[in-house]
Design a protein around this nucleic acid. Structure first.
Length: 496
RNA sequence: GGCGGUGUACCCAAGUGGCCCAAGGGGACGGAUUGCAAAUCCGUUAUUCGCGGGUUCGAAUCCCGCCGCCGCCUCCA
């Protein structure tokens, strides 16, 4: 049994062997911070988070680097539009770096809520201008880049492999080009490594070619090399970045180092909404903050149609994302998200019941073989699923099957505490450590005062029920429910 | 037009040659339990995998053709 990944470079499912085991160098394209994160970001970063968690759980020593793009990402035709961050800064009347700070915080807040582990290193493009300039100089020295009027372009003709990732040929690119070609370029497919800054341009740095700013692609090449070396074991990112972004990264890095840039290219597929890609530029992106906290007027699409009429906690979004494969598109709908919530809570409650038994079940029962066998089988099944290109959907399915069995043990009454502790440990490893589910704690932290009040009401209801005053009992439950508090009668008493 | 991907039940979705008359979740329906409710439990819900051919002893899985949808070829996780 070994780990397999679908390598976009070869379009095959291949056995994963890192260059220097147990170390794994992994780089994932981070966000361009000019707006709040949406469900598309969630799918991408949850997917790679699970890959990192799983590789670590499998004994690999993963060095995870994810960049923050805070300059150079243009709005328009390749190399001719405006910087997205500058556009947002002008809209807000702020310095671009203030915009960057705002959205980096927003991004981290959302990712933390989703229980996504922070990357070991999160380099920012603006913090690595010298490294980018150095790489550009190296490319010029090796004859892969040329300067023209203060800008520097990569010459795709100098790299025969250009197009190998996305399956394109340079000649075809020219033919299909929709964009008016800059006259500074020698070939229409050439792309900018460094752009000359016009006098009014705010984000600018001195360079051997005059004041300017780096092109979008070069940061990933320069920063990944700095922190992970010439050859990465894994490079991840969204499908839509295969071309041109990742293709350009390969060209820059391989021409600069003369070595293979990435051994395994992993691409996650898109989140769609009504079958359409969810994207900022399409105006149909649902922000994570809207999902988690809602909006007074409901979350609506451009045409005013209601997309979400209530909020969902981050663990539910995580569950939703992980019930499909990272490489498959995921179609978003309120119905699908609602279904994910029910499933997620079923898992959460089953886990809580096992935790409870692990603390209270009798200690004088012998360990049962059925338990040990069931846990071993589950573990093997889930592991196999993860080995096959990180099949989280199948792993979750086996988790549900396991909870069906723990439910039986709970009802049987003859299973001892040690067995439940073993089950809890296995469940915890898979749900919390590997899949990263962290459900919102039921009880808000107001020093337990609300809790105490609810307990009084629950006790009064119990008294009413003892007196067969069901009308009063139901009234109490009904009004608590209206306040969002649901009483449940269980064999162990009433919970909420 | 080129490149990449995808099409599995009411919804989401796994499955890449036999263990598939196809996992799991949601929903619905029937039943058990419950004063009621929730939760839980049992059962039912695709002899069939976009369509048509072919290969094979055997295909959802491979090949050919067709149709639909999505992404990329400008920016987007």
């Amino acid at each position: 049994m070994s780990q397999k990944f679908t390598n976009t470079l070869t379009r095959r499912r291949e056995e994963f062997v890192p260059l220097n085991p147990p170390r794994v160098g992994m780089y994932v394209c981070g966000p361009t911070v000019y707006g709040h994160s949406h469900l598309g970001h969630a799918k991408s970063y949850i997917s790679f988070d699970v890959i990192v968690r799983w590789l670590r759980a499998s004994g690999y020593d993963v060095n995870y680097v994810q960049n923050i793009t805070d300059v150079g990402h243009l709005t328009d035709d390749a190399d001719e539009g405006e910087d997205k961050i500058v556009v947002e800064a002008r809209k807000r009347g702020l310095h671009p770096m203030a915009v960057v700070e705002t959205f980096i915080r927003s991004y981290l807040e959302d990712m933390d809520a989703l229980n996504i582990l922070r990357a070991d290193i999160m380099p920012r493009a603006t913090g690595h201008i010298p490294e980018q300039i150095a790489m550009i100089q190296c490319l010029m020295a090796r004859g892969h880049a040329y300067e023209n009027n203060g800008s520097v372009y990569f010459s795709v003709g100098s790299f025969p492999d250009y197009g190998k990732l996305a399956g394109r040929k340079v000649e075809e690119l020219e033919a299909g080009a929709r964009v008016e070609v800059s006259e500074e370029k020698r070939h229409p497919a050439d792309f900018a490594l460094w752009k000359r800054a016009e006098p009014t341009h705010i984000m600018r740095w001195p360079s051997p070619w005059g004041d300017g700013f780096p092109g979008w692609h070069i940061e990933c090449s320069a920063m990944s090399q700095k922190y992970l070396g010439d050859t990465l074991d894994i490079h991840g990112g969204g499908m839509e970045n295969k071309f041109p972004h990742h293709e350009c990264e390969i060209a820059q890095s391989e021409c600069a180092t003369g070595r293979q840039f990435v051994r395994f290219w992993l691409h996650n597929n898109m989140v769609t909404l009504n079958g359409q890609k969810m994207g900022k530029s399409l105006g149909n992106a649902i922000s994570l903050k809207d999902v988690f906290h809602g909006r007074t007027d409901g979350v609506r699409d451009r045409n005013g149609a209601l997309l979400l009429d209530r909020t969902y906690e981050p663990a539910v979004v995580r569950h939703f994302v992980l019930t499909s494969h990272y490489g498959a598109p995921l179609d978003f709908s309120a119905e699908a998200l609602h279904g994910a919530e029910s499933g997620s809570y079923k898992l959460r409650d089953a886990l809580a019941a096992v935790a409870d038994a692990a603390a209270r079940a009798p200690t004088d029962r012998p360990a049962r073989d059925v338990v040990r066998t069931a846990l071993t089988e589950f573990d093997a099944r889930a592991t196999t699923a993860m080995h096959e290109d990180v099949n989280t959907a199948a792993a979750i399915a086996s988790l549900f099957d396991l909870t069906r069995q723990t439910g039986e043990w709970l009802r049987a009454g003859d299973i001892g505490r040690a067995d439940f502790a073993a089950a809890l440990s296995t469940l915890h490893r898979w749900t919390a450590d590997i899949l990263g589910f962290a459900w919102r704690s039921e009880k808000a932290s107001d020093n337990g005062r609300a809790d105490a009040v609810i307990k009084i009401l629950a006790d009064l209801r119990l008294e009413a029920r003892r007196d067969k005053n069901f009308a009063l009992g139901d009234e109490i439950r009904k009004r608590l429910a209206a306040a969002g508090i649901e009483l449940r009668d269980t064999p162990q008493g009433t919970t909420w």
